[in-house]
Design a protein around this nucleic acid. Structure first.
Lengths: 328, 328
DNA sequence: CTGTTAGCGCCTTCAG
DNA sequence: CTGAAGGCGCTAACAG
């Protein structure tokens, strides 16, 4: 491996000068800068990031921690999260360690901390957290690391939370639906009990129901396509519209209605592309997952620089689309 | 940060002794080993991976490079690849850099190499490669790195390829179908032209068609649900069965048949869980993506140890399932 | 503006 | 079986 001193020798200067050129520091004459760059090019010198990290102030690495246990049909969301996070981290010149819940859930909190520390991790972004991930929740209490949590109302001195206003989004999408389809009674399919977002969405639904004087049938379908389908099949009461706390459930509900050969408007939540395959017409909440992830990593940068944890609320959109439209 | 010398002082030994204990080297008495471990525990010492890497023991890092430009509905596949790869890398104690095509495609080959080298990357695994990713293909020619490619017939001294026998898999799934549903004429929906797997699958289809004396209508649907649906709608010739080169296309084909209100058996390829939502009954090829990824990382380890590149063929399964069954 | 000299935290001969 | 010393590749004062 060719190193900084080879370059120095070749350029006829001192190693520190090379270092300065490489790092674009001031106090180097254009002349020597040229010489050095020439030597670098000729030798094909590449600075060793590991050595750079060891010496000088180590920026430290960040961990991207993802939940890999949700329904696989929404992996699209995770991929977008990941892409956004990695992209932003690269832009910020932060080294990333990608982890899945399944890789650490079974380990003790101490083991995890030790691992993270040995990896030089200073901060992390956590996606897809739910209330029953006790190990991860434990990790959040740690003060050793800076953390950013997505869609979970947990923030303190060293932790920020980034999320879209679930309650308002649910409210908005239903309001939009009602413009096109009046309804006196709505069947609401809620998500998993242990989910943080479920509460907000339900609250939003209740709010608009109350304001508009709509009766509400709340059923739990665990974010599952299958359970949503069954819930619709088994519903004995009358209703004019189905509102679902996720697109996947909306798809299940829609399928059941189709099989029952009745039409009722259905709306979802998330904006996954799968929705484009679901039915003739869809209304849903569209979240920009890539942007959420980028924001989260950016905020982690702030935390790492010493800022205090806070809550960041991101906007959402309401979209209506025809069959096989691409959501974008 | 507490380091090895703090431990040494506390335990009343030399730093090298601590190092030996930490790395589980021989020639250390049980007594001192105990002392040292005690000190480590008391001080909460964590070896600094960066420093470890800098000093001799440089295993180097590996890059996991994923294509993030395919249809989003098959992100499930990528997540499984990623999970498998990260898991195995962790087990092998290899540091990982996760990258997406979109992060490097626009860069010059030199920039990429420089980046990779500065990150201390020694090898990489590439998922989702297609013929038109010229930059990545260029990277493959490099001899600086060891590489493992998934589902692409490219291997040489420093490159291994890992894949399932696409041709045989296509053959097998059709053979299975024919057991249940005889057919004299089959509509085959092929995938993208630039795809490596497309060729193998088509070859398998042609082979069985020839052997069984079946007439074949080959249409291109670009791995797209929408195009598959259209292809079925627009097909004017008669046929008894639809064979698709991907599950997504199978879903599209199935939907078209449903809308046309005719029944014809359909089969897919991949085994994504989305297929469970597609129709009453499905037959498809199931690939174990997690295992493929694990194998690939393992093979990269071999390459890194000096072994020559080779081709590794992994098995597949044929599955039949009812509506909403979970593929596993 | 440029060169010298310590380390960063750890591993690894090589004596003792 | 243990300890002292040198070095990995680079950065960061501090002199010159």
């Amino acid at each position: 491996m060719i190193g900084i001193k080879d370059v120095a020798k070749r350029a006829g200067v001192a190693v520190s000068t090379v270092s300065k050129v490489v790092n674009d520091y001031p106090n180097v004459s254009e002349a020597t800068k040229k010489k050095v760059n020439k030597a670098i090019r000729e030798l094909g010198f590449v600075p060793n990031a590991v050595a750079q990290a060891l010496s000088s102030k180590q920026p430290g690495r960040i961990a991207i921690i993802m939940n890999d246990t949700i329904q696989s049909a929404v992996d699209e969301v995770d991929m977008q999260y990941l892409a956004g996070a990695l992209y932003k981290a690269r832009e910020m010149n932060l080294d990333v360690v990608t982890l899945f819940f399944s890789m650490i859930r079974d380990k003790s909190i101490d083991e995890i901390i030790t691992y993270l520390r040995s990896q030089n991790v200073r901060g992390m972004v956590i996606f897809g957290l739910s209330k029953d991930e006790s190990t991860i929740l434990e990790l959040l209490k740690t003060t050793t690391f800076k953390k950013v949590v997505i869609d979970a109302p947990l923030h303190n001195e060293s932790t920020s939370s980034v999320w879209v206003d679930q309650s308002k989004a649910q409210y908005d999408v239903v309001e939009e639906m009602l413009k096109h389809n009046p309804a006196e009674k709505i069947l609401y399919l809620a998500g998993k009990e242990n989910s943080f977002v479920m509460e907000g969405r339900l609250a939003g639904m209740k709010k608009i129901a109350k304001e508009k004087g709509i009766k509400l049938l709340v059923r739990n379908a665990d974010f599952s396509e299958k359970k949503a389908r069954e819930a619709v099949f088994n519903e004995t009461e009358e209703y004019h519209m189905v509102v679902c706390a996720s697109d996947l459930m909306a798809i299940g509900a829609m399928r059941a209605l189709t099989e029952l050969d009745v039409f009722k408007p259905v709306c979802g939540f998330d904006g996954i592309s799968l929705m484009g395959y679901a039915g003739k017409q869809m209304t849903t909440v569209k979240q920009d997952f890539t942007k959420i992830a980028e924001t989260a990593v950016g905020e982690l940068g702030n935390l790492l620089e010493g800022k205090k944890g806070r809550e960041i609320v991101l906007p959402h959109k309401i979209v209506r689309m025809e069959y096989l439209d691409v959501i974008s």
